[in-house]
Simulated assay, not measured.
Amino acid sequence: MSERKNRHYILNQNGIFQPFFGPNKYGKDRNIGTSFLKESDNHLFFSMNVGINPSYSPTQYINELVYFDKENLKYRNILLSGYLLSTVEYNNMAYTLYVNNNDNSVGIYVIDLKTSKKIKQFTIENRLQGLKEYFPIGQNGASLQIFKGKLIVFLDGNTSDTQFHPIMQIIDPKNGKLESETSLSDTSFLFYDSQIYNDKLYILSEDLNFTIFNDLNKNPKKLRLKQSNSVSEKIQNEKGVISGVHYLAGSVFVLYDYVKNSPADRIREIREYDLLTGKELHVIPLAFKSNKEMIRFFLTK
């Protein structure tokens, strides 16, 4: 999916790329990118950042939620106000996290997946003591999950005394009631990703610290992915950043992009870690050189 243009591609099982441009009303190569592409239960969801557009919404900032039914092989879509950040499926409903661009409020839309109708919406409390604003964090839909029948929202502050101290809100999907709010760390925690894997909630920081929930009512497990001194020095000296994370067969695969040099001269590699011990298992160097600024990866089953 493109983050800038309405030009997207599907890779089929035969290795053939097919273009996809969303609903027919949007032309290809329009400045309508997407903020997330996320699989949840029986659907694949993605957003289309339409914004304020003279043809579709001249006065109100809007996004289009598009979703693909994997069983019936059908696409559906619905226009929604605000900027969409993530969607999860639960009980045949789509719960979509958004930010209102006018007043910086945060909320969740509830969409009937069969009719593409908005049923209701919840407001997320994102102002502590009415002063300090918190906003959803994480890449590619990591700011919202469904875990043990609860909506999980990840937020971080936008002021110097709250930034990099993210909180996790646990919300009842039936009524939008906030059941609890938990700080993810007593120290600085640069939230990168959250995923559900093997019935556990994994939360990863940019410096490779995991917070792992087996049960929301119990204290989480902490795990740090282990690095040798030479790898730590390499990451520091070459300005290594995480560019993608995937889970498979008891391992987590982390894609590193070392951004010190120009894109065509960069080192890029995938490191595999054991999810029980944090031990590094393998390193996969990426020999292909590219002049592209950003790089991602995915795992096929």
Rank of each mutant, 00 (worst) to 15 (best):
A287S: 15
P23M: 06
N237D: 12
V259G: 02
L216F: 06
D199G: 07
P166M: 08
N158V: 15
D265H: 14
L178Y: 02
K218G: 08
S57Q: 04
Y256V: 09
S243R: 15
D257C: 09
I16L: 13
P263F: 06
K200M: 04
N12V: 10
Y202A: 04
N42R: 09
Q139F: 14
L44D: 00
I152Q: 01
P58W: 04
Y273A: 00
I242R: 04
Y83V: 07
E125S: 13
P136D: 03
Y83T: 08
I267C: 08
E125A: 09
K292M: 15
A142C: 06
I152R: 00
P166S: 09
P263W: 09
I284N: 14
K74W: 00
I119N: 11
P173L: 07
Q18H: 15
G176V: 00
E206N: 13
N237R: 14
Q236N: 14
K226C: 03
L11F: 07
K38R: 12
G240T: 08
S55W: 01
S55C: 06
G157W: 09
S180T: 15
N104R: 14
S2N: 10
K148H: 13
V259K: 11
V245K: 06
G130S: 08
S183H: 08
V283P: 03
I212R: 08
L216R: 06
K239C: 14
E39M: 13
H8I: 02
D112C: 11
I152L: 09
D69E: 02
I146K: 05
L11V: 12
F253I: 12
I119C: 11
V259M: 09
N198P: 05
H246A: 11
K226M: 10
I152Y: 02
P166E: 07
N140W: 01
N72P: 03
K200H: 05
T277D: 01
E3V: 10
I242A: 09
P58F: 03
L204V: 05
R127L: 14
F210M: 10
M1D: 13
K239H: 15
N92W: 01
Q236F: 12
Q60G: 09
T187V: 10
E238P: 05
V88E: 00
S232N: 12
L85Q: 02
T87N: 01
F298C: 03
N101D: 11
G22M: 03
R266V: 04
P166Y: 08
N42L: 08
Q236E: 13
Y56C: 02
Q18S: 15
P54N: 12
L113E: 07
R296C: 10
D274T: 04
A264G: 07
L11Q: 08
S57H: 03
V110T: 14
N291R: 10
G51C: 03
A94F: 02
I78W: 06
E89Y: 01
Y192M: 07
